[in-house]
């Protein structure tokens, strides 16, 4: 089981390779979309690199639950419903969704995910695997 710092370093390498950003731009607080410029297709690239680096399997939608955000059951008039927010919390225990829950605009969701969230996601996956 790698240490938290080892996990962060591997994630930093994956993000530098996938997004073409500099090492020092990848901080725990940096958001993937706003700060590091990730676009939707980059998430596939990032997931592949994480799977390879940590020898884990990340099913589609686990890191970034796009299916919830495009579901007519969970999204009404551009906002995620309370049931949708609840489902997001269940699926993304590694992310702090309190701010989003207060004003759950779908468009703002992509801006939430941070490098720190990704570290916690991988830590959870590795704990489950081991």
């Amino acid at each position: 089981m790698p240490t938290k710092d080892e996990i962060f370093q591997k994630i930093r390498t994956a993000l530098v390779d996938a997004l073409g950003v500099e090492d020092d731009e990848v901080t725990e607080e940096a958001t993937l979309v706003v700060d590091l410029g990730a676009e939707s297709i980059d998430f596939l690239d990032i997931v592949f690199r994480l799977e390879k680096a940590f020898e884990i399997k990340i099913p589609r939608g686990e890191l970034f639950p796009e299916d919830i955000l495009t579901s007519s059951d969970y999204v009404k008039e551009g906002k995620v419903t309370p049931e949708g927010v609840e489902e997001l919390r269940r699926r993304m225990p590694f992310a702090n969704l309190d701010g989003f829950a207060a004003n759950p605009n779908v468009q703002d969701f992509a801006n939430l995910l941070t490098v720190g969230d990704m570290c916690r996601f991988v830590e959870t996956k590795l704990e489950v695997t081991s």
Partner: peptide
């Protein structure tokens, strides 16, 4: 092929 699964490949 470096990596391949149901989602795609590198």
């Amino acid at each position: 092929i470096d990596h391949i699964d149901d989602n795609g490949a590198m």
